[in-house]
Design a protein around this nucleic acid. Structure first.
Lengths: 104, 104
DNA sequence: ATTTTGTGAAACCAAATGGTTGCACGTATA
DNA sequence: TATACGTGCAACCATTTGGTTTCACAAAAT
């Protein structure tokens, strides 16, 4: 199976989990409370996220706190930067066009 | 089936197609030449991308040029911004810590 | 020591995914 | 007009996905 950030964020529940954990590390049970799905379903999502290295477990007694790996999020940002470059160029082109129109 | 940008970019071939088209609009055949997969496989990916509104077809005679919808890419950027905020905060905290250490 | 709690793992299932082959059909070209 | 070309679509298939239920097990609590 594919295991990368893009696959990790493909599922809406997983995106919600990521956003939840981003604010504060949480245990599987605490996370599951925020969703309709069963604890086991959430647990499977957590497993995928760990395998994709988007989150990391931190054992604390018999509880496990999952925390977001922000660095992994930056990989999306990095991939996106190639397009950001393009849309900034387009914006500049539009800007130049407007200037040209004003000056004519 | 789920049809959003996150699902669109989940597949590596689709990400490659997006990157390819970003530079210049292309026909399905031209796109397929860049991959090992058959034309039909690429065509299915294009269909998914169109349904996700990541690309749009532009008919030209009997050829169809697919072009990237940059606006849709921005949605990823928008979702990502919540985390960008966090990692900038963390960076500032680190920055403050370093300043404190230097001034003590 | 026994029970409860927090968690992961296995087995199973329906649906979705990514791929293939074959066909249909309009648009160019000979 | 007949042929070649560019493309989409349907049918089929193996694999993956997201979910459920059940079980196992260690750590707390009683």
């Amino acid at each position: 199976m594919r295991r990368d950030i893009f696959q990790a964020i493909a599922d809406p529940t997983r995106r919600a989990i990521i956003a939840l954990i981003a604010v504060q590390s949480m245990t599987p049970n605490a996370i599951a409370e925020h969703f309709q799905a069963t604890r086991q379903a959430v647990s499977k999502h957590l497993k995928v996220l760990v395998e994709c290295e988007v989150i990391a477990p931190r054992q604390q007694g018999r509880e496990i706190y999952y925390q977001l790996e922000l660095e992994k999020m930056k990989e999306i940002d990095k991939w996106l930067s190639q397009f950001r470059k393009i849309w900034e160029d387009r914006f500049n082109q539009l800007d130049n066009l407007l200037s040209t129109l004003q000056n004519s």
